[in-house]
Design a protein around this nucleic acid. Sequence first.
DNA 1: TCGGTTGTCTAGCGATGCTAGGATCGAATC
DNA 2: GATTCGATCCTAGCATCGCTAGACAACCGA
Lengths: 192, 192
Amino acid sequence: MSVQERKQRERAERERLIVATARELAEQQGWDAVTTRRLAESIEYSQPVLYSHFRGKREIIGAVALQGATEMAVAVRAATAAADGPRARVAALAHAYLDFAARNPAVYDALFQLDGGLAYAQEDTPEPLKDAFAALLESLGEVAGDGVHPGLFTETFWAALHGLATLTRAGRLPPEDTERRVELVVDRLAIA
Amino acid sequence: MSVQERKQRERAERERLIVATARELAEQQGWDAVTTRRLAESIEYSQPVLYSHFRGKREIIGAVALQGATEMAVAVRAATAAADGPRARVAALAHAYLDFAARNPAVYDALFQLDGGLAYAQEDTPEPLKDAFAALLESLGEVAGDGVHPGLFTETFWAALHGLATLTRAGRLPPEDTERRVELVVDRLAIA
DNA sequence: TCGGTTGTCTAGCGATGCTAGGATCGAATC
DNA sequence: GATTCGATCCTAGCATCGCTAGACAACCGA
């Protein structure tokens, strides 16, 4: 048994290496630079090895996305836990979210822009994605206001943040006034 | 002179055909299906002809984006002109915007998701893009509220709409509750 | 009618995601 | 310790992509 276990361990380790390398490559040079050849060379294996772990490039993107979702949930919860009062929690959440998007653009793309073959907002949605949404809901549900469904409010607030994040990074919005836009969103949308 | 004029006319006509065909193909089968080969075949010319009009695929996307910006500005102005009062104008604007995004997904992508080689929010930004933003500003500036810069408010409101549009279309938000989310954005962000 | 410009096409380059088929290595059996 | 056999991995290649060089033809002005 020990032999098979060792092989399984090594295989799992290699899979982690693939995902980590893909992520690193994507953050450094963009997802376009993450080709199966370059990725294979980086992990010092041949291309077909990638396909013994993942169905294709899409699934690799998906794996990076799941990793990112877990980290984002942690970041959001850490930020909100350190804030006092609903209003402060929402502000902290907004900043943590945008900060994550700015610091990990490739991961953010994998999560919300690219096709990673993942199901969103459905029953078979992977747990990390559900949990990331739950992390938002925990703080945003407090400030939905009377008669407004917390889930719906969270979705709407999230969409506003997503719009700011993507338009800014794509050069559609000048980055200087980001702070003031965030304040506007928090002040107006949240009912504390 | 007449001969040269005729040639110029024909050339301009073919350029329009390229853009229109690219747009059509993109709407029907997605931008991935818009390859230079398929596009060339559709217009019944060889590939290099495309490059005598545009630097490359990017510029073709950019041309579709500019066309879309003009149409969006028209749609938004038509919707707001038919509404009475600032609050109703903003609601009409929001619906017109999301309606445009839903009806022309490929054009919307060309405008705000893909790289069309265009400059945004700068001095050398093409006129159609500036004008589309101006169309938003005309109605949104009215409801920015005291002490809030109209341009900044417009950017923020736009980002919220953009977030809703993209997350919904990418399957990240269930489409059923779109209407209620829009109401929320309009009610909370706009100060009538 | 001729020369030259202008326009267009054929053919091909390097790169992409992905896969078939053979080679090689290691574990289990005699 | 030798041998078989299955798992594992790599070489090589396919179709397709964006883009371009160079040959060819058509047309205009003289």
